[in-house]
Amino acid sequence: MTYKDYITTVYVIVDEVLKLIGHKHKTNKPKFSDSELITLLVYATTFRKGEIKSTLKEFKENYSDMFPYVPELPAIVKRAKKLKKLVKILIVMIKIYYQTKNH
């Protein structure tokens, strides 16, 4: 599985879970959705030891086709704090998904 495959799968899972729980973003059409933000945070946790700064750089350099707009670090950190509990739950869900998929 490539990183792009992983990112795509995580995004779909996150986006579907957010829809199921009725999660709404503050604006109707954000430049960077909560699904995108959570995907970035899950990726950072899974592959970059939680290092958000290097993950932002990687997303901007390598995944601009998937994420055309990635905010700067302060904006990411501010929004991540608000979504902290949800992110933790989704990280566990995604780990379980991959564990069951690989067995």
Rank of each mutant, 00 (worst) to 15 (best):
T2R: 13
D5E: 14
Y6W: 07
Y6G: 02
Y6F: 14
Y11K: 09
V14A: 13
E16R: 06
V17D: 05
K19P: 03
K19L: 08
H25W: 05
K26W: 08
K26R: 05
P30S: 13
P30L: 01
S33D: 14
D34Y: 04
I38K: 07
T39D: 13
T39A: 15
L41M: 07
V42H: 08
A44G: 06
F47E: 01
F47H: 13
R48Q: 11
R48S: 09
K49S: 10
L56Q: 06
L56C: 03
K57Q: 09
K57C: 01
K57N: 05
E58W: 00
F59I: 05
N62H: 07
Y63N: 01
S64P: 00
D65M: 02
M66E: 09
F67C: 03
P74K: 10
P74W: 02
P74S: 02
V77I: 15
R79A: 05
K81C: 04
K82N: 03
K85T: 06
L86Y: 08
K88D: 15
I91C: 07
I91F: 06
I94R: 04
I94A: 12
Y97H: 13
Y98L: 03
Y98P: 02
Q99P: 03
Q99F: 13
Q99V: 09
T100G: 08
K101Y: 04
